[in-house]
Design a protein around this nucleic acid. Structure first.
Lengths: 192, 192, 192, 192
DNA sequence: AATGAATGAGCGTTCATTCAT
DNA sequence: TATGAATGAACGCTCATTCAT
């Protein structure tokens, strides 16, 4: 009995370790600016290719798995910034954008999936949805208070933030003082 | 007589036709969001691989060859916008950015090489240099007249424009009314 | 029971068959004086390219795999000749050279890797090391007994044997009575 | 009139310069241990591929053209050594072998074609024939005087010398004091 | 569920050779 | 006769994906 119960348990532990190893190796590849060849990643993670495919049936899954922690962090930071600003809507907006910009610049996987604007796994989609809610709220307040252009919605912010993050990498060397770009965005979002 | 003169021309015509075919096929690949595999492109252009390599020894060469017309157009449009604005510096800056943004959004090859910030062929580099000159000039005037943040240079504009262009594509479907993004940039560039 | 035990074996059988096929085809190429293009060899062995590369990641590996049996045989024959000669050092030296010469002439792969003087796989290197030991010993005895030039070491013998083996093939047709060349070497190694 | 006569003259000069350039570039490639890709050589020689093919319809021709100077030098040195030794047959034999060995080691192209034992161009074949004559003569004298094994002919010497030359290169680094190998050969050729 | 061998499409690149001019 | 553009076979190598065990 204990045996039978123990087996699947043991396997789950094993599976979790495999998954963790795969993610770790994949993250290293991404950081190094490399692709994510599943074959190589599996080998480096000391895991069979088949196992890798079981965990991540396609590259999007792997990418989202890589990004999800950073995505959760992004959501938290954004929410925290909004909460912390209380009724200061301008600060809330700026803080939310700042938080998103920072997380985005810090995680290549997150930048990739957020740029694509489509999510294939439920967890990621859920976070995205919460994020939209949070921003929709701030945007509404900001608009009401005359702090924001009328023609900008949450999806525009997603695009603009991704674009700005890309801008900071668009060259042979990283840009100096990326926060300038965020300031430009924040200023530009004010009504004309 | 014309015949004799035409003969040597003839071969060049052949070469030119091959080159044109290769470029055409390559452009189609790029539009479809694909890479530029020389092998495939050669096959689809009904041209030997060796011929493809003779014309474009590497991918960068091909990419720049694809982009150079649009890059020239960009330079011309930017210059024209500046000239047309006369002493109205704000209009010159806005017009130059507008022109660059439009060209950039219209040509994927141009967007790619401009994002990379490095040019491997002399012609492209020359255009880039002229462009920097043109923008440096406008930026200087704008700064002098208090129309522009102090901390923004021509390379920042290159990055920001590329980023904005990317933003307009960052999703499953193109953004509505991309000019809004340019307005945001223009507004954001004004001193705080 | 045998079934359960046989299962894992079965896959290895498959792999082994592929490996054997590849080696067989490769050997034929070498005999024909051709190179060892992995692509072609894979096709002729009716095996996927990837499989070929899995077994032999590069040409050196393939070559050493082809040669290793003959190399082992060479080591055995040399050792046997030395042992069989007992205290007759002259016979030991002659026998060892003879054995090496024969094996070398019989296996093109072995001739190639021994000529290169470098071994990329551990097994081959180990045999080479044993061989050096064996020869070093005989050479020392021979020198002590005044049967050998002072200025000849094991690596010289490797080179000279490879050179002689090459000499027997250096023409449109194989040389008549190759053993003459070995006699010349043996005689030439005696002190002046 | 002078024009008509001058034209072909001028072209021959041109052709000769092209030929010389091609040979020069090819020699450089060979020295660097590279292959002789006609395409590349033609380009580096600033000569059309077609022209290169006109001069050297196949690689053997090119190789022999590269080797012929060294081959002539070899013949001269060998003859000179024989003449200089007068009636001292042992010295003549040793000198001839020495000379051949040196030239062979000094010119990779010569080593290649001499190893092949077949000549596709008449000039090379003529030199080879003269060389055989010269050696045949010395060998006959040496045999008559009991200085040489009975079973060794000129072609054996060709093979053995090529083999020895190969022996000096058979490793990651060139052998120390190659003349030892020649001494071994000379000694080994004496009758048992 | 895990493993890893096998497969083969596909891309990069070189080079011998032909042929129109 | 010289030129060099064109060709395409061939090889090196990678990687996504399947599948038997």
């Amino acid at each position: 009995m204990p045996e039978i119960l123990a087996r699947p348990q043991a396997q789950r532990v094993d599976a979790a370790r495999n998954r963790a190893r795969l993610l770790e190796v994949a993250r290293a590849h991404l950081l190094a600016g490399n692709d994510l060849p599943l074959n190589t990643i599996a080998r480096e993670a000391a895991v069979g290719v088949g196992t890798a495919y079981r965990h991540f049936p396609n590259r999007a899954t792997l990418l989202e798995a890589l990004a999800i922690d950073a995505f959760e962090a992004l959501l938290e930071q954004v929410s925290a910034a909004i909460v912390a600003s209380g009724t200061d809507t301008a600060a809330a907006l700026r803080g939310a954008l700042q938080a998103a910009f920072n997380e985005l610049r810090g995680d290549a996987a997150l930048a990739k999936i957020l740029s694509s604007g489509a999510f294939s796994c439920a967890d990621t989609a859920a976070i995205a949805s919460d994020l939209v809610t949070a921003f929709t709220d701030v945007l509404a307040r900001a608009r009401r208070e005359g702090l924001l252009r009328e023609d900008v919605g949450p999806d525009d912010l997603r695009r603009l933030l991704c674009g700005l993050a890309a801008a900071t990498h668009a060259g042979t060397e990283p840009v100096a003082d990326p926060s300038r770009y965020l300031e430009i965005l924040v200023a530009g979002l004010r009504p004309h």
